[in-house]
């Protein structure tokens, strides 16, 4: 693949933004650092969702199932063997007696997410519209139910703790960058363009020989792998996790990030994730104590969610095509006229 300068700018915009956030994380105080890291992991998750939902135009509520699988796989496999015997007593012996390091756990999560998405996608990718939305939602419900109740593969309804907290500023930044680069390469490739064509007009795409089912399945698999990877980043950031943290609320929040940024562009996914997490962090700081930005902010206890939801709704009503208008990042002066 060869890229023009304009194409590289499309990649550099989101990449530089993520690197700046990563650098800010290293200069922030210990209590503030977690906000930046959270934002970077959100970028990875939202970019994973974008790869399927944004490029194919098919709504999916199921991508967080792959985040959940990745998070729990990476989490269970990195708890040190000696502590596992005490806390994860019910799981299969083979899982109990082995542990892996940080990087293998990220790869394992990506592989599992991809395989799971491929298997689920084979039948489901024939659907589109609301039927696809509901069917993928059903996948989320089943994944959550099984992870929560089947104690042979994980901690069940209890908290999975003692996961090494390896997602620092470096890993979060690199992780978000990996997601962005993979998404960029995919959407610039022939397969990505075929899928995008099928989003714009399925009938025409089919008439020129695009196998929509196959293209969607490929995007769903790539998205699943990235989501699993992002889930691993997430669990290594939190250090402990429950099934409720990778369920409905995260699904709605990440979808809202994507739509607020602009559903149809990688730049939109990154901007949306950073804008909403930034707003959320700002509001939770303001709820704890005064925040000085030009004038002093203090939020009444418990009003953070009210403001967050109201601002999200307001942005969607005023700018339905998202903050970026669904366009990729461009530098005006580099564009030939």
């Amino acid at each position: 693949m060869r890229f023009s300068l304009g194409a590289l700018v499309e990649l550099l915009g989101p990449a530089l933004l993520v690197i700046v956030v990563g650098l800010l994380a290293t200069t922030a105080s210990a209590s503030n650092e977690v906000y930046f890291l959270n934002a970077l992991v959100s970028v990875a998750i939202v970019v994973a969702i974008y790869v399927f939902v944004g490029i194919s135009g098919v709504l999916s509520f199921g991508q967080i199932s792959f985040v959940a699988v990745g998070a729990f796989a990476a989490g269970v496999m990195t708890v040190p063997v000696e502590s596992k015997k005490g806390v994860l007593t019910t799981i299969f012996p083979i899982l109990r007696d082995h542990s892996v390091g940080n990087v293998p756990s990220l790869l394992l999560a990506a592989a599992l997410g991809g395989v799971f998405a491929f298997v689920v996608g084979m039948p489901l990718m024939r659907l589109s519209g609301l039927a696809a939305g509901i069917a993928t939602f059903a996948v989320l419900e089943i994944t959550h139910n099984v992870l929560r109740e089947w104690t042979k593969i994980g901690p069940g309804a209890t908290t999975l703790a003692l996961v090494p907290e390896t997602t620092g500023a470096l890993q979060a930044t690199l992780g978000a960058l990996v997601a962005i680069v993979v998404a960029f390469l995919y959407q610039r490739s022939r397969r990505g363009r075929l899928l995008r064509a099928s989003r714009e007009d399925p009938a025409v795409a089919r008439s020129v020989g695009v196998n929509i089912h196959l293209e969607r399945l490929l995007a769903f698999t790539v998205s699943g792998a990235l989501a699993g990877f992002a889930g691993a980043l997430y669990v290594h950031l939190l250090g402990s996790i429950t099934t409720e943290q990778v369920y409905l609320e995260l699904t709605f929040l990440t979808l809202a990030m994507l739509v607020i940024g602009g559903l149809t562009s990688l730049w939109g996914a990154v901007v949306g994730a950073l804008a909403v997490s930034g707003l959320d962090s700002f509001l939770s700081r303001a709820e704890q104590s005064d925040v000085h930005v030009i004038f002093t902010f203090t939020l009444w206890q418990g009003t953070r969610l009210v403001f967050l939801a109201a601002i999200m709704a307001l942005v969607l009503i005023l700018r339905p095509s998202g903050l970026t208008g669904g366009r990729e990042f461009r530098l005006r002066w580099l564009r030939r006229r």
Binding site: L59, L130, F252, I260, L305, A309, A313, L316, I317, P320
Partner: peptide
């Protein structure tokens, strides 16, 4: 006149908003 995805996500936001108000 918005797309179905935008309408749906906005109703998510409204749902969260009302739930947060109810909590307070």
């Amino acid at each position: 006149s918005s797309s179905p995805a935008v309408m749906l996500v906005t109703t998510f936001a409204i749902a969260f908003l009302l739930q947060a108000v109810a909590l307070i």
